Amino acid sequence: MTRKHKFLGLIVLPLAVLFTGCGEDPKPKPESFLRLDYTLGDYTHFESDCPYTFDYNTFSRIKSKGNCNFIVEYPKMKATIYLTYKPVQNNLDLLLRDAEKLTYEHVIKADEIDTRPFINRESKVYGMFSQVGGDAATNAQFYATDSTRHFLTGSMYFYAKPNFDSIMPAAAYIKEDMQNLMESLRWKN
């Protein structure tokens, strides 16, 4: 190596470091949330001594709470669907008011409440599915009835303080399961 090359090396190397080292000051990145993806649901039929049956996701587990009331637990998501059964005994108006009251108790924290009627004339299942947007305690609820003998409500709850941005993937996943449960609901004769 010649003296000229050594001299160029001494000049070029510091200049390269100087130019590559210059740039914008580092800035802190905004907070982010963990991305959660869940496997597609694999549904199986649930049968008991109670007057109704439905399909549920095998990713969850079902526990009886007595009197034909059940909880559908999602341990990995720290969430539960509460199913409450009541017989209709000339009290359908009261049962409907109570179900709607439960939904609209969340208006204070909700950004929006989207309700959709559900009708399956063949199986005599009629009801309403409500999706609650925002930081409400429950993100989805439904009620279903045959309007003469059976009434079932379902509500989704998480075991944590509601922060819709962080629970949105799990809430969307369980909402699909709730809709499937409602659509597969059948009353026993």
Rank of each mutant, 00 (worst) to 15 (best):
N91M: 10
S64G: 07
F164C: 01
P162A: 05
N120P: 03
H106R: 12
R121G: 05
I81F: 07
D49Q: 10
Q131D: 04
T115V: 04
D165N: 15
K188Q: 12
F129R: 08
I71N: 11
A171P: 11
A170N: 11
A160F: 05
P30C: 02
M182F: 03
V72H: 13
R97Q: 13
D111A: 13
T58K: 15
Y85V: 00
K124I: 09
D49M: 05
E183N: 14
L185K: 07
K65M: 15
I119M: 12
I174D: 04
D98S: 15
N180W: 09
G41L: 11
E105F: 08
V12A: 14
L92Y: 08
H5T: 13
V72S: 06
L181E: 05
N57H: 11
L40R: 14
G41E: 07
K161R: 13
G154I: 06
E183P: 02
P169R: 05
Q131T: 14
D49T: 06
L181D: 01
K63T: 07
K188L: 13
H106K: 05
N91I: 00
L102P: 01
D37W: 05
D111K: 14
L83M: 09
F19E: 03
A140S: 15
P117R: 06
L185F: 11
N69M: 08
H45V: 00
Y43L: 00
A99C: 08
G154E: 08
K109V: 01
V132W: 09
A79Y: 05
A136S: 14
I108W: 07
A160N: 10
K27R: 10
F151K: 10
D177M: 10
L185R: 07
T145P: 01
Q89E: 10
D25Y: 01
P14V: 03
D135Y: 09
L102S: 12
K161Y: 10
C50K: 09
D55S: 15
S123I: 03
R121W: 03
L83W: 09
V107C: 07
T58Q: 13
R35W: 05
M1L: 11
Y157V: 09
L92Q: 14
G134M: 13
E183A: 10
A16N: 02
N163A: 02
R186G: 06
M77D: 08
L36N: 12
D114K: 15
H106L: 12
T153V: 00
Y38N: 12
T103R: 14
D37L: 00
A79W: 06
R116C: 00
R35S: 06
M1G: 06
K76R: 08
Y56N: 04
G133F: 13
L36A: 03
R3I: 04
A144K: 15
R186H: 13
K101G: 00
T20K: 04
I11P: 02
I113V: 14
G21H: 12
Y159F: 10
G154D: 09
P26S: 05
N69L: 04
P117S: 14
T80N: 10
S64Y: 02
R121M: 03
D111W: 00
K4L: 11
D114Y: 06
P75C: 11
P117A: 09
R97D: 11
